[in-house]
Amino acid sequence: MARQTELLKGTLDLLILRSLELEPRHGLGVAERIEQVTRGTFIVKPGSLFPALHRLERQGFIDGEWILSAAGKRAKSYRLTAAGKKQLSAEKKAWARIAGAVGQMLEEQEG
């Protein structure tokens, strides 16, 4: 089992937005996608997933919609809104800056 890493505060929002970039997903879909893409580094539990989803929805970055699944069950599916896309690219840039800075710091120390 892959080692799990504590999510940095604010990172979860970025990961959720990113996971919805290509297509709408429901709750479990988002969690699976994050787990899959990070190869199990991040496992998002419902206790943090749902509050984050609802918060993002309230902020207008994603939009929840009740749809009928293939099995004929009602499920709430989230899709990225225009505002969400903008937010995602802003957060990506911010993340890149942080990651670069942190990486540099680490390299220097090791070197």
Binding site: L28, F50, A75, K76
Partner: peptide
């Protein structure tokens, strides 16, 4: 009620998985 339904859906999906 909606939150309830959403969470139950999640649980069901998880069980299916």
């Amino acid at each position: 009620r909606e939150l309830d339904e959403e969470l139950r859906g999640y649980l069901d999906d998880l069980i299916e998985k």
